[in-house]
Computed example of a mutant assay.
Amino acid sequence: MLHFLSEQSSVTLWMIFLAENVVITIIAIAAGSYVIKRHQKHKPVASKREIVFCIVTNLLNTAITYAGFRLWQHGYIEFSFDINWCTLTDFLLLFMAMDLAMYLFHYGIHRTIAYRYIHQLHHAYTNPTPIDLFVLHPLETLGFGALWLAMLYVYSFNFAAVLIYLTVNVVYGITGHLGIEPFPARWRNKPLLKYLGTSTFHHRHHSDIHCNFGFYTNIWDKLFKTYKP
């Protein structure tokens, strides 16, 4: 796939990456809306403001994808392509490393002036809906993108592990912005599962900005004493 992309022009690459991001966004919003409709019998309606920021986020994510591809082409980012045990270990490493990095980034935003001028936009939605996953200040989108590219730069991950991680990332994003909890408590309290970030976990963060800064797990919040159940 990467070698096919290498043969394309810059304009074609931009169009491919834009289409990829738009499709992911549509799937995320549609899947999240479907879950909400099943639980609450109504479909969330996005405002014009949310739609505009969603479009801007897609354009910036396209730019980040393009930058990552060019960094790979020039050897700054490297991948392994064999499907073996490294696929699982690399996924787990990437999952936990990004969870920690995003926790620190997220916590830092909340503890500095960046919250007022950048992140407060996202927190305007105390009862988020799926589209709010993509309602971010442009600087915040670029910040998360830079964090992602830096992670790929410092370690050569298995490419399949990266694809799995990106899929899981979207699923978490949808779940965290449902505004409802689709999973019963008996599931959330099982071993291992109780350490994962849930819709309830992230919804609490939207209603109380002083807690629950994690994304995929609540481990770092519990470790650094920012967790509230």
Rank of each mutant, 00 (worst) to 15 (best):
V170T: 13
A185F: 03
T175C: 04
H3P: 02
R49M: 07
A28R: 00
H110Y: 09
H110C: 10
R70P: 00
G173C: 14
V162C: 12
G68P: 01
H74Y: 05
M102T: 15
L133M: 08
F105E: 13
S33R: 13
Y227H: 14
A31Q: 01
N212V: 10
I180E: 13
Y227M: 08
H3Q: 15
K48W: 11
I24F: 09
W72L: 06
Y107C: 04
F53T: 01
N84Q: 14
W14P: 00
I36L: 05
F105R: 07
P138N: 11
G176P: 01
Y115N: 03
F215S: 03
V135P: 10
T25Q: 13
K37N: 14
I83Q: 04
I83V: 14
T200P: 02
R70A: 10
L59A: 14
S10W: 01
V45T: 07
I164M: 13
I29W: 02
F201I: 01
T141G: 05
V170W: 02
I77F: 04
V56F: 10
V162Q: 09
H137L: 15
K48I: 05
P191S: 11
N189L: 03
L93W: 14
C211R: 01
I64K: 02
V35F: 11
A101P: 05
Y165C: 02
N127F: 04
H3E: 15
H137Y: 13
F4S: 09
G179D: 12
P44C: 07
L178N: 03
L178Y: 04
K43I: 05
M15V: 05
G32H: 02
H110A: 08
K48S: 08
I83G: 02
F157R: 10
D132K: 00
N61F: 03
H205G: 00
F213V: 12
L59D: 03
C54D: 09
L5C: 08
R186D: 08
G176I: 01
H122N: 07
V23C: 05
F95M: 13
I64T: 12
E181F: 02
A150G: 12
K43Y: 13
L192V: 15
V56R: 03
P138Y: 12
G197Y: 03
L152Y: 12
F4D: 08
I27Y: 02
T129L: 00
M1S: 07
F79K: 11
I27N: 08
R38Y: 07
H119C: 01
S199D: 04
N169G: 00
F157A: 14
A97L: 09
